Computed example of a mutant assay.
Amino acid sequence: MNAADVMSSPAVAVNPSTTVRAASAMLGDHGFSALPVVDDEDRLVGIVSGADLLLAGMSPETADEPVSRVMRGSVISAPMTASPAELTETMLAQRLRCLPIVTYGQLLVGVVSRSDLLRILTPADAVLAARVDTALRAYSGDPRWTVSVQDGEVSVSGPFSDQAERKVVEALVRTVPGVRGTQVAS
Results as ranks from 00 to 15, higher is better:
1 M>R: 12
2 N>Q: 13
6 V>E: 03
10 P>N: 09
11 A>K: 07
14 V>M: 08
15 N>S: 15
17 S>V: 05
18 T>K: 01
20 V>P: 01
20 V>F: 01
21 R>I: 02
23 A>F: 02
24 S>N: 08
25 A>L: 13
29 D>C: 05
30 H>E: 11
32 F>T: 05
33 S>C: 10
36 P>F: 01
36 P>T: 03
38 V>K: 00
38 V>E: 01
40 D>Y: 08
41 E>F: 06
41 E>Q: 12
41 E>P: 01
42 D>C: 12
43 R>E: 07
44 L>H: 00
46 G>S: 07
48 V>S: 02
49 S>Q: 02
49 S>F: 01
52 D>A: 07
54 L>D: 06
56 A>P: 04
56 A>G: 13
56 A>D: 07
58 M>K: 06
58 M>N: 10
59 S>C: 08
63 A>Y: 06
64 D>R: 04
64 D>P: 01
65 E>M: 09
65 E>I: 02
66 P>R: 01
71 M>L: 11
71 M>F: 06
73 G>C: 09
74 S>W: 04
75 V>N: 05
80 M>E: 12
80 M>G: 09
85 A>C: 08
86 E>L: 06
86 E>F: 03
87 L>V: 03
90 T>R: 08
90 T>I: 13
91 M>I: 03
92 L>F: 10
94 Q>E: 09
95 R>N: 13
95 R>S: 14
101 I>K: 00
103 T>F: 05
103 T>I: 11
103 T>W: 04
104 Y>C: 00
104 Y>A: 03
105 G>E: 15
108 L>E: 00
108 L>I: 01
111 V>G: 02
113 S>K: 01
114 R>M: 13
117 L>Y: 04
117 L>P: 03
118 L>S: 11
119 R>W: 07
120 I>K: 03
121 L>Q: 13
125 D>E: 14
126 A>N: 15
126 A>I: 08
127 V>F: 07
128 L>C: 04
129 A>Q: 12
129 A>F: 07
130 A>V: 08
131 R>M: 12
133 D>C: 06
133 D>G: 10
133 D>T: 14
133 D>Q: 13
135 A>M: 11
135 A>Q: 10
137 R>P: 04
137 R>S: 10
138 A>H: 06
139 Y>N: 08
140 S>A: 14
142 D>Q: 11
142 D>S: 11
142 D>A: 13
143 P>E: 14
143 P>H: 14
143 P>Q: 14
144 R>Y: 07
145 W>E: 08
145 W>Y: 15
152 G>P: 12
153 E>V: 14
154 V>K: 02
157 S>L: 09
162 D>R: 09
165 E>K: 02
165 E>D: 04
167 K>R: 13
169 V>G: 03
172 L>T: 14
173 V>D: 02
175 T>K: 11
175 T>N: 09
176 V>F: 13
178 G>N: 10
179 V>T: 07
184 V>F: 10
184 V>S: 11
